[in-house]
Simulated scan of single mutants.
Amino acid sequence: MDEKQLQDYVKQVSLQYFKRPFVHQAYFNRRLKTTGGRYRLADHNLEFNPKMGDLPEFLGIVKHELVHYHLHLNHQGYRHGDSDFKELLTRVKGSRYAPDIGLRQCRPKVLTYCCEQGHLIKRQRRINTNRYVCGRCGQPLQLITVKK
């Protein structure tokens, strides 16, 4: 699905399920990783995750973002916790959550440092070994392994 097809699809879903036109822009945002879509309050545009565009749950994601869109433009409760949002989302049978496509399951890297006494220190962030020393014995640290 390309940008033009996405725009037409969102317009069609808006008319079919909400009986209101979608007059702003809908486009794919490749920076979205774990969310299905996003409604932008500043310009009323909709952004969608391109990896979820081919999933069967994509219609529910579009409905979810259109619920935000139409409620915000009608000055009603458009946030997830608002009763207006929950009511309209269940009425149009939109999805509450985006499906998990496996992008959340990345393991953090582990850096292992060792001092001269043999004390091991495991970290997720790199530290400056010229500035920091072992907290147990005060000896200088040395980077040993980086595991992903």
Rank of each mutant, 00 (worst) to 15 (best):
L55P: 00
L55K: 01
P56T: 05
E57Q: 09
E57V: 01
E57W: 02
G60C: 01
G60N: 00
I61E: 06
K63M: 08
K63I: 13
K63Q: 09
K63S: 07
K63V: 11
E65S: 11
L66S: 04
H68Y: 14
H68T: 09
H70R: 15
L71N: 12
L71V: 13
L73M: 02
L73G: 00
L73E: 07
H75C: 06
Q76C: 08
Q76D: 07
G77W: 00
G77Q: 03
R79V: 08
R79S: 10
H80F: 13
G81H: 09
G81I: 04
G81C: 05
D82G: 02
S83A: 14
S83E: 14
D84R: 07
D84F: 13
D84Y: 14
F85L: 07
F85T: 04
K86A: 07
K86R: 15
K86E: 12
L88R: 09
L89Q: 10
L89F: 06
T90G: 06
R91C: 13
R91P: 02
R91Y: 15
R91K: 15
K93R: 13
G94M: 05
G94H: 02
G94P: 03
S95E: 07
S95N: 01
S95K: 00
S95C: 01
R96A: 10
R96H: 04
Y97Q: 10
P99L: 01
P99T: 02
P99Q: 01
P99G: 04
P99C: 00
P99I: 01
I101K: 02
I101R: 03
I101W: 01
G102E: 07
G102S: 10
L103G: 01
Q105L: 15
C106I: 13
C106D: 11
C106Y: 08
R107A: 14
P108G: 10
K109D: 09
K109A: 14
V110P: 12
L111A: 08
L111E: 05
T112F: 10
Y113G: 09
Y113P: 15
C114P: 01
C114V: 11
C114L: 12
C114Q: 14
C115M: 01
C115L: 00
Q117V: 00
Q117D: 03
Q117T: 02
G118Q: 14
H119Q: 12
H119F: 05
L120F: 15
L120M: 15
I121S: 09
I121L: 12
K122W: 08
K122G: 03
R123I: 03
Q124G: 03
Q124K: 08
R126D: 08
R126V: 04
I127Y: 07
N128F: 08
N130G: 09
R131P: 00
Y132N: 11
V133H: 11
C137I: 04
G138Q: 04
G138F: 02
G138W: 00
